[in-house]
Amino acid sequence: MHIMEGFLPVGHAVAWTAVSAPVVAYGSWRLIRTVRQNPELKLLLAASGAYVFILSALKIPSVTGSCSHPTGTGLAASLFGPWIAAVLGTIVLLFQALLLAHGGLTTLGANVFSMAIVGPIVAWSLFRGLRGAGVAGAVAIFFAAALGDLATYVVTSFQLAAAFPDPVSGFWGASAKFLSVFALTQIPLAISEGLLTAIVYNLLQRY
């Protein structure tokens, strides 16, 4: 769920950029260290990043009938860890803004925080936790992908609520408002994405 260009007031745009920047910078540092040790990883990282972008062009059906875009960053997190995934996710979001006019430059920081940082970290740590607790791979990946998606959606709603608190009920009222407006599309989507990722996981095990 992308926040559009210009939708956030200038203070919020700057603040979210400041929050995301250190994470992306740290991820970049790790990425640089990795490719310096192993130049061919540069090509593999780029190919995986492109894969993450392309997954977002894969339309999946949700129960309500609307189609949308799975993020795929969870998968990148499982391949390269959440830090490098955050960098790849940032590049993907920049590409989406400039190739599809989806998202934006001033809202890049906010979108990176929800989609390239929180989502993948939730998905990645859930997957590791569930696997550690002995849950089957496909089940773990279902919850990781679905809840990673939901985490993104919750964070986006909070970001919007922080920028536009409700005149009556303040931040929490606005959060409830944004959560429920986008719930219709996002919850079925999260389930679809969880199912899809679980099937993909099973198929990849067999390749």
Binding site: E40, L43, A47, S48, Y51, I54, L196, I199, V200, Y207
Partner: peptide, 25 residues
Amino acid sequence: RWLRSSALLAAGLLPRALDRGTRMD
């Protein structure tokens, strides 16, 4: 079938992507 086909496609693309990377290298 849609969900199944999408999953086949998504799963099939990952090895292809990595293969592309290796060949480009």
